[in-house]
């Protein structure tokens, strides 16, 4: 546990001295901010004609999910790939630390950075809360934030695993992006053409996008939580296998 924390802490600090992390933070918060203002203005303008429903927390979190799809590969691409490139992998793998501790520590570092961004984004629901009569639905606020936290855990675990396979961070970036896009969206495509039934249900079960939207609407099932946590664990397991494979080459 101690090793995991040592690795995670270094990785977390590392984000604050790297330009990429600042660009990601800027892009996330800027985009969410612009979208927020536009939606609020639009709803306010509509309010001249009829009483539209007040926008909920999903206008913030839905956007963050899209941005995290792109940002996660950028946050994880150098985690293990860079250690390989710089030769410091040899150093880490000869310290008294298990391979899985290294992988989990790296993931945790990136997850903590994502949590920081998510934490900053709480300012929007807060503003929304003061603007709308009666405030926002707190249940939806909670389920929305659970959804984005679970989703970022999955995205970053997959990114960490892919980073362990490459020594070039840009290769890691694009490979991660491809897999995330597939899990997010591509995997749900067969359900449009398949007749309703078991096979269609399996694809439906696997897609992240559908689950995420359901959670945004306030429906969180045990299956959702199990699915996200098992994908995260699978990512971290595959990352560990990839690190171990490096030893055997």
């Amino acid at each position: 546990m101690r090793n995991i924390w040592t690795i995670a802490r270094r990785e977390y600090r590392q984000y604050f001295i790297s330009p990429i992390a600042y660009i990601i933070a800027l892009a996330t918060l800027l985009w969410v901010g612009i979208y927020f203002v536009v939606v609020i203005n639009y709803v306010a303008a509509q309010a001249y004609y009829y009483a539209p429903p007040a926008p909920g927390v999903s206008i913030v979190i839905g956007q963050m999910a899209t941005i995290f799809l792109l940002a996660s590969p950028a946050l994880t691409m150098r985690l293990l790939a860079d250690e390989q490139r710089m030769g410091t992998m040899e150093l880490l793998l000869t310290t008294p630390m298990h391979d899985w501790e290294l992988v989990v520590g790296k993931w945790l570092g990136s997850f903590l950075f994502a949590l920081t961004l998510i934490g900053v984004s709480l300012i929007y629901p807060l503003v929304l809360h003061t603007m709308t009569t009666g405030g926002i639905d707190q249940g939806l606020l909670l389920s929305g934030y659970v959804a984005i936290i679970l989703l970022s855990a999955v995205f970053l675990a997959i990114g960490t695993a892919i980073s362990a396979l490459f020594s070039n961070q840009f290769a890691a970036f694009f490979a991660t992006l491809a897999i995330l896009l597939a899990l997010w969206w591509l995997i749900s495509l067969p359900t449009y053409v398949l007749p309703p039934g078991t096979i269609s249900d399996i694809f439906n079960y696997l897609t992240l996008n559908g689950r995420f939207n359901a959670m945004l609407d306030g429906v969180i099932t045990n299956a959702d939580i199990v699915y996200h946590l098992s994908l995260t664990a699978l990512g971290l397991f595959l990352g560990t296998v990839a690190v171990e494979m490096r030893r055997w080459r």
Binding site: G87, T88, T94, T95, H98
Partner: peptide
């Protein structure tokens, strides 16, 4: 392996350092 690594100090050929 872990016990061995606890008791060994290692300087690889390309000195592994974090420049930043």
């Amino acid at each position: 392996s872990i016990e061995v690594r606890r008791r060994v100090g290692y300087l690889p050929e390309t000195v592994p350092l974090y420049p930043d």
